[in-house]
Amino acid sequence: MKEIVVISGKGGTGKTSLTAAFAAMGGKQVLADCDVDAADLHLVLNPEIIREDVFIGGSKASIREEDCTGCGLCVEHCRFRAIEYPVAASGDRADKPRINPVFCEGCRVCVRICPVEAIAFDPAESGRLFVSRTPLGPMVHACLGVAQGNSGKLVTLVRNEARAIAEREACELIIIDGPPGVGCPVIASITGANLALIVTEPTLSGHHDMQRAAELTAHFLIPTLVCVNKWDIHPGMTERIEKEARDHGVIPAGRIRYDQLVTEAQVRRTNVLACGDSPIGEEIKALWRCIEGALNGARTGGAGLKTVPP
């Protein structure tokens, strides 16, 4: 079983639209949407949810007002500024502090420090995990509750679930739609993947973000391809990004043009390839062939990566 993860450094580069198009070509596969913070893949895959799990990311503290003496020790020791004295509109400060669950990181310091045991600590729902059937194969996706931490843990759950399904249904491939950035959820999305595809745009920021994403995949020793989306917006920058990528050991795998068809496909809740033959469709198909070549090469220890034409 192989895992390919599509990431982007910065968001909004067309990563999810490309992932959906890849899914239309991939054959027997499992799809995993690891952008749990802003999962969008389901919007174009018409999923039918067959299982829904509650995700408990951790516990949160809350003060039992009747037991609290208002000593303020918890306020002083919470490093996440989650505990404060409510202030009324009149400017009066309450005697007893409150914990804002949005900011509580569940470290338990307050629970331990409270001299009168006035602080409860209970598991809290921080998101949902879904297993769905889609016309393009099984999909695992998730939705992190707003203002919840622990996205890395939820990403790991999504990946584990996708692997379990792939094994059960003898799927050869898992396509992962990764989150933006280079932080905790991205790290959880890429570790152990066979191949990463960085989708970038030919802009100065795209250039900069591609470098950071490439450093990250290098840090985790993941063979990496790059694709410049909307390349014709700035052909010079496209060249620069591709050259820079090669210097980083990242292989340019294709260029995709700027085309309104991408938005149109999204509005029609489908992928670009399902909108009939088009030049952009041909470019995406060529890109996918390149990815498949690299994946098969990766099977023999990554050497095959070098045979991918730039």
Partner: peptide, 15 residues
């Protein structure tokens, strides 16, 4: 008047 960060409504922010 300046009102500091809100902490006056216990609400679990889950979706």
């Amino acid at each position: 008047k300046e009102v500091p960060a809100p902490a006056n409504r216990e609400r679990t922010a889950t979706s």
